[in-house]
């Protein structure tokens, strides 16, 4: 099996920066406590990140212009959101989402 040295260096380099992003906060926060205002700030991270990740999948970027809508993903979001409200069960939500997009792709 081929292992190209350029690809290996990319893997190692990007692995290192990703690992540092993940681990350094754990090392620092083992020793220091965060001030209250930062804790409050971080309390919003979950909803902000999840909303941003969702939006990223709904929009298609064209730098310099406003993004366009990813129609299949936007449509699939509707039954997914409804299933979340009804079931509150993550596995069901994921299955409904996947089936919704598959059906939409089939029809469109």
């Amino acid at each position: 099996m081929a292992l190209n040295s350029y690809v290996l260096l990319v893997i190692l380099g990007s692995g290192l920066v990703t690992w540092l992003s993940r681990v350094v906060p754990f090392i620092l926060l083992k020793q220091f406590k965060l001030p209250k205002v930062v804790v409050n700030f971080l309390g919003f991270v979950p909803i902000c990140i999840m909303t941003a990740l969702w939006m990223e999948s709904l929009l298609i970027q064209h730098l310099g212009q406003f993004p366009t809508l990813n129609v299949p993903n936007a449509l699939a979001s509707i039954p997914t959101l409804i299933s979340a409200m009804i079931s509150k069960n993550l596995l069901i939500i994921v299955i409904v989402g996947v089936i919704s997009l598959a059906v939409i792709n089939l029809v469109m």
Binding site: T51, L90, V94, V98
Partner: peptide, 10 residues
């Protein structure tokens, strides 16, 4: 994406 929608709602 579906998972994030679900987790956001929850």
């Amino acid at each position: 994406v579906a998972m994030f929608i679900g987790l956001l709602y929850l």
